Simulated assay, not measured.
Amino acid sequence: MLSADRLFGLFWTVLGAAIVFESWRMDRLEQQHINPWTVPGLVPGLLGIVLALFGVVLAARRAPPSEMPVEQDLLGLEEPPPEPTHGTDEPWRIALSLLLCLGFAGGLVGSGLPFWAAAFVFLFLAILLFEWPDRRAAGTLARGAAQAALIAAVAAALVTLVFQEVFLVRLP
């Protein structure tokens, strides 16, 4: 019987491969002398490759030691390592992801705010809110907010730079 990870890994692998296939079939616009870095299908194709690779990794990964029989525990651990404090058993994370993504795509981008600022807000809130429970428990909220701001600023600048200078995409 397939585990949920294997099933979802197979799903993401097939979806990624389908995206790569359809991206490859797109018109390259050679007759219009389009820069090869800006051809239609390039970014979706690259994302499809990454999606398929992560799907393979998800499908192929082994069960954690806590789920393996003792005779298969190659690490020789007497007790399994502690489970992470968060995971798929916390549905608020899925809801928060959906809310942040919809807020970014539907509210921030195209609202008059420069893309780099919208990306900064999205990334800052995502990092801060997903780390909130662990940071609050550890008493490091201020440090976490500072780190989130730094990471968001660097990532927003790099994403904007790559899209504008490498892919020649005009961002709002």
Results as ranks from 00 to 15, higher is better:
residue 125 L to T: 01
residue 101 C to Q: 14
residue 94 I to P: 02
residue 114 P to Y: 06
residue 87 G to V: 01
residue 95 A to H: 11
residue 125 L to F: 09
residue 100 L to K: 01
residue 102 L to E: 09
residue 112 G to W: 07
residue 138 A to G: 05
residue 135 R to D: 10
residue 118 A to R: 02
residue 103 G to W: 04
residue 89 D to M: 13
residue 105 A to K: 12
residue 92 W to A: 10
residue 140 T to C: 05
residue 94 I to D: 08
residue 110 G to A: 04
residue 126 A to R: 06
residue 98 L to N: 04
residue 130 F to T: 05
residue 88 T to A: 09
residue 141 L to S: 09
residue 98 L to Y: 10
residue 137 A to E: 11
residue 110 G to M: 07
residue 127 I to H: 02
residue 97 S to W: 09
residue 141 L to Y: 02
residue 106 G to E: 01
residue 132 W to L: 10
residue 118 A to V: 05
residue 118 A to Y: 02
residue 119 A to S: 09
residue 118 A to C: 12
residue 119 A to Q: 01
residue 120 F to G: 00
residue 106 G to N: 07
residue 130 F to P: 00
residue 131 E to M: 07
residue 133 P to A: 09
residue 135 R to S: 15
residue 139 G to H: 07
residue 143 R to N: 11
residue 143 R to I: 09
residue 104 F to Q: 00
residue 99 L to Q: 12
residue 101 C to I: 15
residue 111 S to C: 12
residue 137 A to G: 06
residue 122 F to T: 03
residue 114 P to C: 11
residue 110 G to K: 05
residue 107 G to S: 10
residue 107 G to W: 09
residue 119 A to Y: 00
residue 89 D to G: 15
residue 133 P to H: 02
residue 92 W to Q: 05
residue 108 L to R: 00
residue 124 F to P: 02
residue 90 E to M: 11
residue 125 L to H: 03
residue 142 A to V: 12
residue 93 R to K: 15
residue 113 L to E: 04
residue 132 W to G: 00
residue 140 T to F: 06
residue 107 G to Y: 10
residue 88 T to W: 15
residue 98 L to F: 13
residue 95 A to N: 09
residue 87 G to S: 06
residue 106 G to V: 08
residue 142 A to L: 15
residue 128 L to T: 14
residue 115 F to T: 07
residue 136 R to D: 09
residue 141 L to A: 11
residue 128 L to F: 13
residue 136 R to G: 07
residue 109 V to L: 13
residue 129 L to V: 06
residue 108 L to Q: 01
residue 93 R to Q: 15
residue 91 P to T: 04
residue 131 E to P: 04
residue 88 T to E: 08
residue 90 E to N: 10
residue 87 G to W: 07
residue 93 R to T: 11
residue 127 I to E: 02
residue 109 V to P: 00
residue 137 A to K: 07
residue 92 W to N: 04
